[in-house]
């Protein structure tokens, strides 16, 4: 318990102590944070370019009933049923949005809003009604808790402890994401840029659209435990959006988004340590801060950069 909102800043307790005294825990937390935001950011680059940001938001909310029902049916927190429940929920969301759009004159934005809020409401009701049976905490769903990551079961491989299970799971997802990115980069690029051309090249744009949606659901479900359903969308949009303010090339943007993810994880962790706040919240604050910084001062397009350049020009041109 403390008195002030901003505690006194002490270099030692904020930056040194977490590593010196709880090095192991801090490592897993930061690694998990990085894996989550890195994977989300990777997928997010395409999500942004395809203008699916809010569909992603909808999916992240709709996962809640999916995992809750999976949980109620199997009575376990195993990865597989949760994953299947989440994917089913993700697909249901997209199908429902499309169905409402095509069967009525409701515009896509309203369809998105109606679908995700209804599904989310169902999820919340299920959780509060079966509160005694589900150890899914509604608040955990909303905030996520990276701090608990080191306390999770340790995954074993050939008798050797390799790390907390969620971290290992996220690492696998990250590797799959990178593999998919390398394998389908050109298809993703062309279907995002010009679906018409893609079709003329024999690349089916709808197939890739659904593939991306599916994988997005997988990424979101493996992330939400750590960052919560709302902040997962921050991890999806911020890295890519910030990178796209700096560079004009997609590959470069992807590299940059990974770099930003690392920054979010490390700085967010220390910010949260200082304020004793939610780590996911801290990461988002850092993400927002970095975006603001880049927005104002990016090398070519930053608002302040432009301003400075303009006034500089004026000075040099005026005699």
């Amino acid at each position: 318990m403390r008195e002030h909102f901003f505690p006194d800043f002490d270099w030692h307790t904020v930056f040194v102590q977490p590593w010196a005294e709880y090095g192991d825990n801090s490592f897993w937390i930061v690694l998990m944070g990085f894996l989550v935001s890195g994977t989300c950011g990777l997928v997010g680059c395409f999500v942004i370019l395809r203008r699916m940001a809010l569909v992603g938001d909808a999916i992240s909310h709709s996962l809640l009933p999916g995992i809750t029902i999976a949980f109620l049916l199997t009575n376990s927190r195993d990865t597989l049923p949760m994953m299947l429940g989440a994917i089913a929920a993700g697909i249901t969301t997209v199908v429902l949005i499309e169905a409402i759009r095509h069967s009525s004159r409701i515009k896509p934005d309203a369809a998105i809003g109606i679908v995700f809020s209804s599904l989310f409401a169902i999820g919340i009701i299920l959780i509060s009604v079966f509160a005694d049976k589900i150890d899914l905490d509604a608040e955990c769903v909303l905030y996520g808790e990276l701090g608990f990551i080191p306390l999770q079961d340790i995954a074993m491989l050939g008798g050797v402890e390799i790390g907390p299970e969620p971290v290992i799971r996220m690492a696998i997802i990250a590797v799959i994401a990178i593999g998919l990115l390398i394998a389908f980069f050109k298809e993703m690029l062309v279907t995002s840029f010009d679906p018409g051309l893609a079709a003329s090249l024999g690349i089916n744009p709808t197939r890739y659209q659904y593939g991306l949606t599916l994988f997005l659901s997988v990424v979101i479900v493996s992330s939400f435990e750590s960052v919560g359903v709302v902040l997962v969308i921050a991890m999806i949009i911020f890295p890519g959006a910030t990178a796209l303010l700096i560079t004009d090339r997609l590959p470069k943007a992807i590299w940059l988004s990974i770099l930003f993810s690392l920054l979010y994880a490390v700085l967010g962790f220390h910010l949260a340590t200082w304020l004793e706040a939610s780590i996911a919240g801290g990461m988002t604050v850092i993400a927002g801060f970095i975006f603001g910084l880049v927005w104002m001062a990016a090398p070519k397009r930053g608002l302040l950069t432009k301003l400075v350049k303009r006034s500089f020009k004026r000075e040099t041109t005026s005699p």
Binding site: M1, R2, E3, H4, F5, I48, R51, M52, A53, L54, G56, D57, L142, Y143, G228, V230, L231, I233, A234, I236, I237, F238, A241, L244, L245, L271, A272, L275, E276, A277, S278, A280, G281, G282, M283, T284, V285, A287, G288, F291, W295, R301
Partner: peptide, 30 residues
């Protein structure tokens, strides 16, 4: 910027919410 409306909305939504969550968790410790 050349970011589209959906990205802008998503960022504001999640960014502000993140700040809010930070603050509420801090308040709970106050």
């Amino acid at each position: 910027t050349h970011l589209k409306e959906d990205s802008a909305m998503g960022m504001v939504l999640a960014g502000f919410y993140g700040v809010g969550i930070c603050m509420t968790t801090v308040i709970q410790n106050l």
